[in-house]
Design a binder for these strands. Structure first.
Lengths: 239, 239
DNA sequence: TCAAAAGTGTTGGGATTACACCCATGG
DNA sequence: CCATGGGTGTAATCCCAACACTTTTGA
């Protein structure tokens, strides 16, 4: 019985009441063909509500941190390991899960849709959903999605995390479309370019992407060093 | 046995491993006589490390949310109930507490030092410490304090929470000193006044506080409605 | 009358907004 | 050669930072 291991290590806190702890990840991706921000969902595996759409999650195991748990489940379902993943918020209402007293730590993740392993995706029945047509999810997961989306909108103004959603080489039109989709409003093309260039974050490549126009749009990558610097100290990216 | 109640409600998740969950609150106060930002600590009541300085915390009980737990312990130790309290971050490293596998949800609180009940403070052996001379704390509590302080500095630029640390009636010199203490840098007096007035958050009273000068400084209170509005939508308060 | 803290405005520079046309190319 | 999307510059405005003197009054 697995709770035995736990009991053994509890030398001190007799009489205190342990609680089940889960992690649930809100995983964002940007489909730049459709120009849509999406989140990754799967069908819940356990009762109650088995088979219903759910955030991707797992119970936290005795010998792993919550971070490790969130990384583990993300790796299992997408094959990805070097991704942007951070803790968002802990949901602790006593009645949030009718199955038991379960707390959930929500994680916020940004991934590049193209990178993930399609076989794994199919294997586990995960699916990308447009953020404006998320189905009814189990428990309080719809609330988690709403709050994660707010977090994304706030965050993108302070840190250059938008890039986590784009492929390594991307064009400015793609970048602009991403920000428009996140902010849910049209942005001025010229001012956006001016601002993004002024950050010194972009490295222009020689190649062009001609998949969307005859003229072709220059590809860029971002300067890893500058990126880290800005991630650390933040910036102000109001538009 | 209290864990029985828990077992009873766990109809579904057999074989999953529950974890002890605690809350720990980083409680900030501003002593405007000393012009110092402080945090409230107490001496830990349980082994291991009983008697050492610690953040104020408690285990989360089976029938309370983590928020309720944090409010409960704050009320017990300070007598205060209408305070600014929000969840900060969950600490989940497996080895963070040698006593057992315990997660801790850190809470961030801002209170008005004068409001709290001195008798309770004395009764529980709590004490205010300058943020620049925090003693060694149990477990990872020093880390929590550092991160909470960073959070305060970030937050104060986006939301008008500074007021939570001041008495209901306060003077502009007090407010400026508070911000200087939080930002840890001198601020331009005239620009600060201009900016704070432009927010439309302050209501000037007829009274003056003459405790710090012969001329006396006008007392202000803040406009609750405007405050709520700005708390909701945020602002930019770079200085 | 003077010391000590409170209060008050202006100006220059940098950033942000609004806005319209030329460019390159494949079909 | 033309339709389509990619790319560029400037002027007006707003916001922010820097900066020094006057006011009040109790001792």
């Amino acid at each position: 019985m697995s709770s035995k291991a736990y009991q053994l290590s509890n030398k001190y806190y007799y009489g205190s009441d342990p609680i089940l702890v889960a992690v649930d990840s809100i995983i964002f991706g940007f489909d730049y063909h459709e120009e849509k921000l999406k989140i990754l969902l799967f069908k819940r595996l356990v009762e109650p509500f088995s088979g219903q759409w759910s955030l991707i999650g797992s119970f936290v195991k005795p010998h792993e941190s919550a971070d490790a748990s969130a990384y583990r489940i993300l790796k299992e379902l997408t094959g990805l390991s070097n991704v942007f993943l951070e803790q968002l918020k802990c949901y602790t209402e006593t009645d949030r899960d009718p199955g038991a007293r379960v707390m959930s730590i929500a994680y916020f993740s940004l991934i590049q849709i193209e990178d993930h392993n399609d076989e794994l995706i199919n294997l586990h029945g995960t699916r990308w959903f447009d953020i404006d047509s998320i189905p009814d999810l189990v428990l309080d997961h719809n609330k988690m999605v709403r709050e994660a989306l707010e977090h994304l909108r706030t965050m993108v103004r302070r840190k250059p995390v938008g890039f986590e959603l784009l492929p390594n080489h991307f064009t400015l039109p793609q970048l602009i479309k991403l920000y428009q989709e996140i902010y849910q409003k049209p942005l001025d093309d010229r001012n956006f370019r001016k601002k993004i260039h002024s950050l010194g974050l972009l490295k222009k490549l020689d190649k062009k992407d001609k998949s969307t126009s005859k003229k072709g749009a220059f590809l860029y990558k971002f300067d890893q060093k500058k990126y880290m610097e800005l991630l650390e100290k933040g910036f102000n990216f109001e538009l």
